[in-house]
Write a protein that binds this DNA or RNA. Structure first.
Lengths: 244, 244
DNA sequence: CGGAGTCTTGAAATATGTCAACTCCCGTGG
DNA sequence: CCACGGGAGTTGACATATTTCAAGACTCCG
């Protein structure tokens, strides 16, 4: 019931065409992918796979947000990855998951069967090199997150998270109007991502609000009123992660 | 003065031949690598490169231990990676470092010039696939560390660290004798790796000692007396990471 | 309109950090 | 060879950020 097979989009019309695993492919290679790809959709909150499961496919997030999380025996859980549109799910060469994968919002994946995909990686340098690049980018992101988890204060963590959401929302800020942004996770999920409790996340969001840095439209929608102050609160270098 | 060029070892005699980036190479490919490789050595404590530096080479750790660390403006630092023998340093496709790299012990690297190496990656599937595999392994390790940094207690962190050192020391434990192990980092470096202070690390090591789980021979050398209790203290699943 | 999930806010508890004193080593130079 | 000095590590007392526990408010949806 959670999994729905969606109708096809042509690769050339695909919103993630230029950022995903296929971004370096030429027309011929795209045709090959087009023939073997298929879509899967998951409703918000439903599991995509559990730790230890063998996942028969790999694929790209086309729409929505999924989390990768590790849970300890006593229930403590840590989110170890956030998959946003264009991010890749699955590890060539190993089919068993090392973490739980959950759809945080409604999610659509563009999937490939594992076997054929691994063959393609072997025979298509434009795919294998993009795969290396994406894996190394994820590694960089994971390392930035290690700094956050190991050394940042609660306020810095929450500010960093908001800043990342704003950055990855890929919005043109042509005029000076603040833009309506979406928080794709519950407070609890944010807490699991930031290594905090949900109460602390809530308090720090209130703090950013009372400082006039962000404004909430409702619980899931907000605007950034002061990007500079937000960045200053994140603990990152003065210039390091500027968005505009 | 810190950098020393060492005499050559033949690839077939190389201690990391079967675990490093070259592990899937055949004899012909190895010959190619043999021709372009060269060694660099660094003395304990010396920098291999700083964040923002452009590193002209990539390479494997042959001997010793190096750390990758990120430092914030106010001095808080987090170690985001530990390079042990066979681990790979450098990212094809980008030459600037995103973290400081430091030799924790005396280190010997087996290096390749960046340009030629990138060509090799493009033309040698046995290297590019091994590179993908190693990048994904590192990503897995980084994600395990995220769980540690985000959710584990000080005791669990220190126990996990000791367990990792024991596991990666690659020692055959044929009889039941405890084995002499080396702590390749100072208390401060361990603290930076674990997201703790050096005082907390010291206290937790004393705690493991007083529980009879480990025993110190001197400050840098120790034995694990009770692997099961060590694992139980690490917070990982009952079976998850057993060593023997 | 009710109920359940989600979120906010407050008060108290606690794990870890901070500050400080002291010890232990190890290498150096007299 | 010994004394010295300094870095590294240990341990204690106190401070504090974040968690834990608890109560209540908001919102969406039946």
């Amino acid at each position: 019931m959670n999994v729905v097979l969606t109708e096809r989009i042509k690769c050339n019309d695909c919103p993630i065409r230029h950022r995903a695993i296929c971004s370096s492919c030429d027309e011929t290679e795209l045709d090959t992918l087009e023939k073997v790809k298929y879509y899967k959709s998951f409703t918000a909150g439903s599991p995509i796979g559990y730790r230890g499961d063998s996942l028969g496919f790999v694929g790209s997030v086309v729409k929505g947000v999924a989390t990768l999380e590790k849970t300890m025996e006593d229930g403590r859980t840590q989110t170890v990855g956030l998959l946003l549109p264009s991010d890749f799910l699955g590890r060539p060469g190993r089919s068993t998951l090392d973490y739980d994968v959950t759809a945080s919002t409604d999610v659509t994946l563009c999937c490939f069967e594992r076997g054929p995909f691994e063959d393609l990686v072997g025979s298509t340098p434009n795919i294998s090199s993009r795969l290396i690049e994406m894996a190394l980018d994820e590694l960089d992101a994971a390392r930035d997150w290690m700094l956050l988890l190991g050394r940042k204060t609660a306020e810095e963590r929450v500010a960093s998270f908001i800043e990342m959401i704003a950055r990855r929302s890929h919005i043109e800020n042509t005029d000076d109007q603040p833009i309506k942004l979406v928080l794709p996770l519950t407070r609890e999920s944010i807490a699991n991502y930031l290594g905090l409790t949900l109460e602390t996340v809530s308090r720090q969001l209130s703090r950013l609000k009372s400082k006039g840095i962000i404004r909430f439209l409702d619980r899931r929608h907000f605007e950034v009123l002061d990007y500079q102050a937000l960045h200053a609160s994140s603990g990152d270098d003065a210039d390091g992660g500027m968005i505009f």
